[in-house]
Design a protein around this nucleic acid. Structure first.
Lengths: 322, 322
DNA sequence: CTGAAAGCGCTTACAG
DNA sequence: CTGAAAGCGCTTACAG
């Protein structure tokens, strides 16, 4: 039995070329000997690498963890390895990923919420929660999400709804904020929302940004947060101002991570199907690598998960004053 | 200029073989042309792969996220790629990782809290928070951590200290529980601790396991948790029993993740330097791959981070009864 | 249906 | 100090 026969059988191209009996023999022998084709040789000869790069700004972010999970599973199901590339948000970091792509270490790149440099080569790339003309991207339906959040609060009786986002202008957060504003404007009776921005996507920064908002003379009776981490900051700030949730303050969050589950009461949240987001992005990427046409924009629906953090608005007495 | 000269220069083996002037010329030309050596060819010829596999049971676990972060950074600093291999806890999953190792996709494996099959080949492997004779491992100093936790509670006046772990007998959690017991036994005045075990490492399972403990006639006045996620469960269960923290119940946790930070008040926690844990494991692995001798056991110290969840024991009146 | 041969792009002894 | 040559282990036309 020659090398080529083995290769044909093991790559599954033996149909109609190698007899079924021989195929079985080869497979069995391979299994017994524990034969494992050398990936580098296969890649060198075939010119294809069965690996994709997951370019993530911050592995520790619980939401990104869920997205990575979905992406890794989808990649594995297709026989692809997932190479983790933690990047930070800088252009230099993206450049390293592109280098890995050109070096053939990975066949494609998944960019998680990272805006690539203008003019960067985005061949073999799919974006998650970022948009760029001409490059396929998968994004959450934040318009529907923010509308659902605001509508819920309005139905509960709130007229003064605040917003907590972050100062960083990354696409995902800018988009959420814009969609929140649009949702508010659809309700003419609402007060113009107070917007607070945290310096970082951390609980401490969220609390620091939320605290002044909660100490205002006419403070909002409800706050919509762009992320569970920020919601945790609001909970901390509320405790600092001796405000109870949802008695004195209602909170709606955006993400659906374990951080929101840790809060007491569990935060009502716009739940993004993070794993699905990652899985879809991987499948788009693999399609793109296979030369198939892929849609430029895939929108993933979100759902509102009502839990314990929304109630009727507090009667603002002296306790609400500055 | 021939191929070999370029190779010599770019791999840094040109010293004393290629003139400095030529080296500079080659480097500049490579930079201008954007030349990037093909990884597969390099790996095939040299027989070495500059990638390691991160075998993680659950990417979404915030503590493992921190460990992965440290591991990825350390690998990147050494010019190694990190291939993410989400495994679950099964033996089959480890087998897939070993296959990737034999296929040369990665040169070594980092096993995160996963006990490999008995008799498995652990060449080129380093373990994190697991131990196995003959294989290098990096573990937390949970003995010191649990001692610090119990000592703090005893100093605060507690005599009835409960423990919340998980039913799964994975090494890390078994070890923590054992060390907790040992720490308690060092204080003769303490009541035998009530131990509750959650079915899963989730907030809901933690709450479900903690609730009966908190409803006991002589309930513990303090609880030590094996993980921040379980502590979040205790917070939820306490709220369900209308117990305040730390007024009615003190809580000490173990990890130091964002989940503990999300709790109000922030949970007092045995803080494990997760990133450092991952970084050290990577450096050990790279040393091992380079053929250098590495210690079989590396113990990483932990620190107690005192925050708002510990106070003096509650006076148990009728409120504490069943 | 099966086998012999070329060649992917590097690295690494080796000869000059 | 530099260049010509072999070969890593596969896959893939191609000939039989």
């Amino acid at each position: 039995v020659t090398q080529s026969t083995v290769s044909l059988v093991l790559t599954g191209k033996g149909a109609g070329r190698v007899s079924t009996a021989l195929q079985a023999t080869v497979r069995q022998a391979a299994a017994e000997l524990g034969y494992q084709p050398l990936e580098s040789a296969r890649a060198l000869r075939s010119g294809r690498t069965e690996a994709i790069g997951l370019v993530v700004p911050d592995i520790t972010n619980p939401f990104l963890g869920l997205v990575m999970h979905g992406a890794q599973q989808a990649a594995g199901a297709a026989g692809f390895a997932a190479v983790l590339m933690e990047s930070g948000r800088g252009a230099a970091d993206h450049r390293r990923a592109v280098q890995a792509l050109r070096g053939g270490l990975v066949g494609g790149l998944l960019l998680f919420g990272i805006a690539p440099e203008r003019g960067a080569d985005l061949q073999g790339t799919v974006l998650i929660e970022v948009q760029r003309r001409g490059t396929p991207s998968v994004v959450l339906d934040s318009g529907a999400g923010m509308t659902a959040a605001v509508d819920l609060l309005v139905r509960a009786g709130h007229r003064a709804i605040g917003y907590l986002g972050i100062t960083d202008r990354r696409w995902s957060f800018e988009h959420r904020q814009r969609q929140f504003s649009a949702a508010v404007q659809r309700h003419p009776g609402l007060r113009a929302p107070v917007v607070a921005l945290a310096e970082d996507l951390t609980i401490a920064a969220g609390a620091a940004a939320a605290a002044p908002m909660l100490r205002r003379r006419r403070r909002p009776t409800a706050v919509v947060c762009a992320d569970d981490i920020l919601a945790a900051g609001v909970y901390a700030a509320a405790a600092g101002s001796a405000l109870t949730i949802p008695g004195d303050l209602s909170v709606v969050s955006y993400a659906g991570t374990i951080v929101g589950d840790a809060l007491v009461p569990h935060v009502t949240t716009v739940r993004a199907p993070a794993g699905d987001l990652g899985g879809r992005a991987v499948r788009l990427l693999l399609d793109r690598l296979a030369g198939e046409p892929v849609p430029e924009r895939t929108v993933v629906p979100v759902t509102l998960s009502e839990r314990g953090s929304v109630g009727p608005p507090a009667q603002l007495g002296p306790a609400g004053g500055a």
